[in-house]
Design a protein around this nucleic acid. Structure first.
Length: 109
DNA sequence: GCCATGGCTAGTA
DNA sequence: GCCATGGCTAGTA
């Protein structure tokens, strides 16, 4: 079955997140055209991260926290982000005011 | 039916 | 902690 337009756009948006920045599930969904599609972003990250070479680690939840569990990739994701100079506070939280990618808004300015 | 969400509510501290 | 969301997948008819 062919991938939906939405799925393809999710992949494009994730690919566009630059090194050193993060985006959120909800924001990726919104930029891809469906503000309610956060769970599809999860699905794409699950199924396409490897095959599509996605910077999967640059997607966090809306609080700026890694959604993965401690034995499910949390450490790996944190390492990858820190290697890009993304900083975590004592609660493993990222300051989204500093590290959030603003997406298409840049193009509109 | 699944899901690495997100938003809102109830119920504690 | 509950539940709506929505595209996909596995598994049936």
């Amino acid at each position: 079955m062919a991938r939906s337009v939405f799925t393809v756009r999710i992949i494009e948006v994730i690919r566009a997140i630059p090194s050193g920045k993060v985006s959120t599930y909800g924001e990726v969904a919104e930029l891809a055209g469906n503000p309610q599609g956060a769970r599809q972003v999860v699905r794409v990250l699950h199924s396409c991260s490897e095959t599509e070479n996605l910077p999967w680690h640059r997607v966090v939840n809306r609080l700026g926290r890694i959604a993965l569990g401690p034995f499910d990739g949390f450490d790996r994701q944190k390492e990858l982000l820190e290697a890009e100079s993304v900083e975590f506070d004592d609660n493993d939280q990222i300051d989204l005011n500093r590290f959030r990618w603003r997406g298409d808004l840049d193009a509109l300015c």
